[in-house]
Design a protein around this nucleic acid. Structure first.
Length: 277
DNA sequence: ACCCAGGCGACGA
DNA sequence: TCGTCGCATGGG
């Protein structure tokens, strides 16, 4: 493997946290090794990632792929500016202050859609397990024991029985329906990127097993639709307590980032929300 | 053992 | 249109 280390600079004032970004529930294919580096696969590229005072350190990337990783970590976006807007609301400021270094990753549309189909009524740790088995069973081996995320065309030809090793339960038929509708073009992911938001939501929800929440997650994490605001059980609890009258207006254009701050805060500090007890 | 999880579809009122 | 229930599985 190429052992050259490449740095993607992030201005210090943006306060990036690699660990918070990769552990905040938006992605499922990164694992921290004993050395503290994170190993992951993005669109068929295996990589080891760490950070220093100036940004992101990448080990093992191919020549000329810096821009790919810049895009993945959304480094063209200035998060300090976004936090300044969000923090006009004091409650939002408190949530953001808890893990200000989170960035919303720009993930692959199909992988994101499929992963969040798997996420429903499920735990983070178990979601990662099912996704890992999905890749091991049906992805391509990139290097030793490292597999890509399988394309929809690969999964579309399978049966529920074929997916039994994933132990994904009732979600298996949802995975297959998504793979089939995407590979036949009944749902065109490339179009969803630019559709009016409500049309995009409706298009994704044509898939059996994709409802409002999964569609919202796919649009935010897989299509960079930053005004999306996924509401899972954690968010419902947190919102009821923090924002009973809804998300403040100053957060609307960056609702997805606000959501990530609130979600992470709620998950890390469940005792902060009385109705949980 | 027990509760619940980044929900959704089916069904009945 | 809205509330309720079953769903597969296993981490904590």
């Amino acid at each position: 493997m190429n052992s050259t280390i490449c740095r993607l600079a992030i201005p210090v004032e943006e306060g990036f946290s690699l660990a918070d970004t990769l552990n905040c529930g938006q992605c499922f294919r990164w694992n921290q090794t004993e050395s503290g580096w994170f190993e992951g696969v993005v669109e068929g590229r295996f990589c080891c990632v760490s950070q220093d005072d100036y940004g992101i350190l990448l080990q093992g990337i191919a020549d000329g792929e810096e821009d790919f990783w810049r895009d993945y970590f959304d480094l063209a976006t200035n998060y300090a500016n976004i936090r300044t807007k969000l923090c006009k609301d004091k409650t939002l400021a408190k949530a953001a202050e808890f893990a200000p270094g989170i960035r919303v990753l720009r993930q692959h549309p199909w992988e994101t859609l499929c992963s969040f189909i798997i996420s429903q009524n499920n735990h983070l740790a178990r979601i990662k397990g099912i996704v890992a088995r999905l890749c091991e069973c049906f992805g391509d081996e990139i290097t030793n024991g490292v597999y890509s995320f399988p394309a929809p065309e690969r999964l579309a030809v399978l049966s529920e029985e074929d997916l039994a090793p994933l132990r994904s339960g009732f979600r298996a038929k949802y995975i297959l329906d998504a793979a089939r509708k995407v590979s036949t073009g009944e749902v065109v992911l490339a179009d969803i990127k630019t559709m009016p938001l409500d049309d995009a939501r409706a298009a994704l929800q044509k898939i059996h097993g994709v409802g409002p929440k999964v569609a919202e997650c796919a649009l935010l994490y897989g299509f960079a639709r930053m005004e999306c605001f996924p509401m899972d059980v954690w968010m419902k609890r947190a919102m009821k307590y923090l924002f009973p009258n809804g998300l403040p207006q100053c957060a609307k254009e960056n609702a997805g980032i606000a959501q990530q701050y609130i979600f992470h805060y709620a998950r890390m500090c469940p005792d902060a929300f009385p109705e949980k007890m």
